[in-house]
Design a binder for these strands. Sequence first.
DNA 1: CTTCTTATGCCAACACAGTTGACCTTACGC
DNA 2: GCGTAAGGTCAACTGTGTTGGCATAAGAAG
Lengths: 232, 232
Amino acid sequence: MPKAVVSEEKRRRRRPTRSGTVLSEHLIIDTALRLLREHGSAGLSARRLGLALDCDPSALYRYFRGMDDLTLAIGDTLIGQALDGWRPTGAWREDLRRLGMRIHTAYVSHPQAAVLTTSRVTGRANELAADEAVLGVLRTAGLAVGEAVRVYHAFIDQTLAFAALDAASLALPNAALRAEDEVWRSTYGHLPAASHPNIAAAAPLLATEMVRSAYPSALELLLDAVAARLVG
Amino acid sequence: MPKAVVSEEKRRRRRPTRSGTVLSEHLIIDTALRLLREHGSAGLSARRLGLALDCDPSALYRYFRGMDDLTLAIGDTLIGQALDGWRPTGAWREDLRRLGMRIHTAYVSHPQAAVLTTSRVTGRANELAADEAVLGVLRTAGLAVGEAVRVYHAFIDQTLAFAALDAASLALPNAALRAEDEVWRSTYGHLPAASHPNIAAAAPLLATEMVRSAYPSALELLLDAVAARLVG
DNA sequence: CTTCTTATGCCAACACAGTTGACCTTACGC
DNA sequence: GCGTAAGGTCAACTGTGTTGGCATAAGAAG
């Protein structure tokens, strides 16, 4: 076992695995994302990863301190994807909306990975870049530092929170998914109006509404609040 | 292994375990909550639960279909605690605020358990009661069914999402907690102003702000939006 | 081109997890 | 009291993360 993991830049020796492939942080993370997509958020394991990469599971410990460390790296990769290509235009509201939607989208498009990473603070490069971007937009919009920090907090937490929730429902394995659908239709749909009048009345609407994400509307609410502070 | 689990009401035989204690759904859930609090969200396992209850791990399968089923039951217990004692007063805004804060508080006061359960739809009794309560408040406030459902969706998702996020940071084991604190202070605190000017400027405020939950302010924003719809 | 060092892949083993099937004992309904 | 079956127990299976020791080949040095 390595005492300390060699950082990717310092890595010199590129020894191929027995089957010929050459490992790297990037390759490992990519394969992990594939495994997560194919086998669900519980389908990522050191042994399965070793199988997919055709290497011994313990080889992974030369690249990450453990599975948890790998998880954080995956999370940072997602943020990186969200930020890729984003540039501030100067129109704060549009910038912030795009940023929020991009982060939300990046997580939700890898639901199984998102489930594992949304609520972790990594301090890695891409996460820092995202924080810097949000704070930058808010301050150039005209907010004082203190207010910018408060809004930043609400913004980033709300985005991650909804991403986590939306990802969680997308990440459910097919069986559980059908089970939850069944719960909505059978339990909620056939609830006696005597005991649960409001659910009974809303049942058909519930089934369609609960599929969509509530994030876009929540985001607009937050942007409205920021706008109010800027004029006031 | 039991083909189907006997529901708690139908349970007749109360056979004591070898050490004398008599098992029950309630006792098992309580013990599980204790284990979660004491050993963190990864500290709940069938074997440890068996040890704490002084019974064989496989005995649990007479009460729950598996660890996942137990998890859902724990979640429903938390919602039950949140609802316990809540009554609608007729003042919709106050009712909704109290409901939101109660649910958020219930989850956050069992962070380790919340991490496991926040994003699961169970269809169990207490969850149904909570949904019925929210829809009831919104409709008696004067919202049409369609709008009530949309607001209900945003409300419940937002509450659970923030609960999950806030719980996650509270649930981190001490070591990881210190590590994240370290990340905030060292990484964010000593970031060169050249590359990350906005984080550098906001660093002292970030450290204090990021400890608080952003839920209360997010909740007020949502209530404002509902109020706007009611007058319009 | 040879030699040396050490990074890094591989192997075997550990303790822990969830889950199951067979067994057996004992509480309860009659 | 008796018969039944609920439910606690045991042993075993597969899968997990992680580690220490070992072997080998990549790349630096000469």
